[in-house]
Simulated scan of single mutants.
Amino acid sequence: MSASIQTKTIHEFLAEAPDVDSSELWASFWEILSEAKDRITAELAVVPHASGAGLDYWVTDDGAYEGSLNPYVGDPDTGVEWLVHSWIGNRKASILDMNLQVWLGPHIDVPHLVIVFGTVPQIFHFNDFVARRDLMTDVDYLERYYEPLNQSFLSLRGDDRFTWSVSHGTYMRAFNSPVANSYMAERSDDVVETLRRSVLERVDTWLGWVRDAQPVPVEERAALRERDHLVRRYGYTLDPMNELSKKFLGAERVEELVAARAGLGQIAELD
């Protein structure tokens, strides 16, 4: 496909087809994200965080935007520091942004996990393992966590059903690892099933890393947490998708939801 498809903005996609019903895709993607969450929380204990009170389902007065925001925490020193399972959009009007993100404590340096599904109304999918070391200098870390996924990454990258999707945010491009999946695809059952398999395989791989991880030396943990918190903060606050949401919800409400989704209050407590 042409490069223009790879770099087309969400606004441009939506302008071409603003009223497509994505309810069935929402159900499929929420099922995938929920299964991923359940696999993770079966091994890594979490409890709901108070910042999610009243946000398990919300909708604007005019029905133009709706969503669900479900944050969880584990033991920040020995397990999951922050897990968020959420979606925002309009199931009847083309636009969805759905995600599961898991941020680990500094006791280990296993990459964090990010999984995103969306519709614009074409399918959008992103998933990645967020590096916690400098991949340009820490070659051992690169080979431990990223090299084993190289072939599966290249296999999906070479699948002509999927077109690479380029974020217009420079920070979001810096956020990506060498095995990040960022794709647009036509709406079809076979595409959904391919993404389901890809996501669940990656979740199982990630859980294996967590099981086998070696402890980070105690004296290095504070610096690792400080870096984690910066990456977590910027990954949410610098997302270009926030600008689209402001058109429906207003800047103040979007800032509130982004803060809750990123767990900025929890970050402040731990720093």
Rank of each mutant, 00 (worst) to 15 (best):
G63L: 12
R227E: 06
L224Q: 13
R132E: 12
S245N: 08
M136F: 14
R133A: 15
P71Y: 10
F117E: 08
A268N: 12
G79R: 01
H168F: 03
D109S: 13
F248N: 00
G89R: 05
L249Y: 04
Q122N: 05
L257D: 11
R144E: 15
I267C: 03
R161N: 08
P215V: 12
E252Q: 10
T9Y: 08
S182C: 15
L207N: 11
F126L: 11
E147S: 05
E255Y: 02
V73K: 06
F129K: 03
P71G: 12
A268E: 15
D138S: 10
R233C: 09
S94L: 01
Q266P: 00
D56K: 11
G54L: 00
S2G: 14
S155K: 05
H229E: 12
L238D: 13
K8A: 12
L44C: 10
L154E: 15
Y171C: 02
A50I: 05
P76G: 04
V192T: 11
L33T: 11
M98D: 03
L264D: 10
D19Q: 04
Y57Q: 14
L25H: 09
S245V: 07
G169W: 07
D75N: 14
P215N: 05
P76M: 02
S245L: 06
P18K: 01
V254K: 03
P111Q: 07
L44N: 01
A262H: 07
L135P: 00
V84H: 07
A223E: 15
A259I: 00
G67P: 01
R187K: 12
S182I: 13
A223C: 04
S188D: 13
P111D: 05
A251T: 02
A42I: 00
K246T: 11
V139N: 03
